[in-house]
Design a protein around this nucleic acid. Sequence first.
RNA 1: GUCCCCAUCGUCCAGAGGCCCAGGACGUGGCCCUUUCAAGGCCAAAACACGGGUUCGAAUCCCGUUGGGGACGCCA
Length: 506
Amino acid sequence: MRVRFAPSPTGQLHVGNARTALFNWLLARGHAGTFILRIEDTDAERSTKASEESILEDLRWLGLEWDEGPDVGGGCGPYRQSERLHLYTSYANELLGAGYAYYCFCSPQKLEADRKQDLAAGRPPKYHGTCRSVGPDEARRRIDAGERAVVRFRVPEHVDITFHDLVRGDVTFNTDNIGDFVLIRSDGRPQYNFAVVIDDALMEVTHVIRGEDHISNTPKQVLVYRALAFSPPRFAHLALVMGPDHTPLSKRHGATSVAEFRDRGYLPEALTNYLALIGWSPRSDAANPGSNEELLPIDELARRFALEDVGHSAGVFDPEKLSWMNRHYMKTLPPARVAAEASRFFVARGFIRKMTDASAAYLESILPMAAGSVDRLEEIPERLAFLFEFDADAAATHADISAIVEEPGAREVIAALPAAITGPMLDRESFRAMAARVREKTGQKGKSLFHPIRAALTGEAGGPELDLAVPAIDRGAALPLAAGVARIRSSAERAKAFAAAVSRHE
RNA sequence: GUCCCCAUCGUCCAGAGGCCCAGGACGUGGCCCUUUCAAGGCCAAAACACGGGUUCGAAUCCCGUUGGGGACGCCA
């Protein structure tokens, strides 16, 4: 089995296309097949090297490694259409010679006028066949005289073209609705429907899995396969991904590109898992009696994936469910993995100055207390800001904190704190022991004990469990400067500074 | 306009004629847990687009209607 993903490098990788890539990848990986990446850059005006690079980067980030492609090579290269122009020319000449194609000299203006006329008359707008009768000799003469021409495919009339779609079954189009389409443009570059056939055939692609927007191109491509005596691949057309208003997912709906999701702190594990579930669900059978499973890592998805189980209708992209999945993976993935993906957000925020083994280890140790309570990695540094930023005076005058200070008994707790902290609290037990000392001294317990402690030690009114937060503070405070972590003030220092600030602002 | 595709809770899916007065998940509401915010646990509300057939029996098969999407380019 050989499948391919063939993006055109005209922008960032869209989640809809990422899903198409994913389905191809899952099928290949589940069947010991080959996943090919091909760059469809025949649109010279819109294609850019930068977007090609970003698409490759996004696919790699998602974990969709390819076996053959522009950067890794392979036996059927080159893998950029712009480097395969000679092939298209050669096959176009073959079709021209055999009468399957002809030169067309119609001007864009005439074509546009014909189109309007068809539309107005309620006919399918298609090429009128004006140049069908121009013979090879005349065509040669006009080209030599400098006229610009395209090569068109001669579509037979009144013919039903049926192809079997692996997700939809047999699909039939009548050629009366298909105009003579362009094979080669006047500048010599191939048109999509031609290049895709040549490439898929030469690259020995066995399964073409693509968006449903291509289903009506398929009969044209089948025509070309037949004319060239290539055997067509198996086709599978995937229903499109929509926005909440059932219009195609676009910028208006928020983030749509893989890069945006990465920048906002979604894990690739969450994105691939979520995307796989739009239009597909694992089959329940004797081997998988549970069914209804949704949290499946990518390898498991590959093991379970089957085109027969792909749905027929378009699905709405639901950011809420993606976020839920992201939370799940933030909590369940190995901390080192989450830390690797989250570190850039800490660096951006200035909390980590330099990535070192020590800063990575510290990050890994503090992440779990925040990972379960936010939707995205990007939100974690803010959630843990209390570690790196502590301003006793600012805290003491903050409305939420003063409210806590005013609670009965709170001042006693705050005053008792400095003496109760006898040294760094590096684990849960030492924090609890300290809290017990304060309880004994002040008689406060429960909320009236812990609220003031939190205020004094973190400068905030809410946050992660103190059991975890306080040891994280003191472990951070013990870090040498060379670790690359922004300076963290110890709980002892904080307790003193906060008590002083409170009496100062009385 | 013409052609093609599609149609189960707000959303994503399960359901391949009786197991379905329709099941799971996200979201929503409530309760519990709790030193905060979360998380977690439990419970609840919530759908077979409509109309005809076929059949002893239809969410499931057929036809139509309606609705949605796609395509009809020297874009891909």
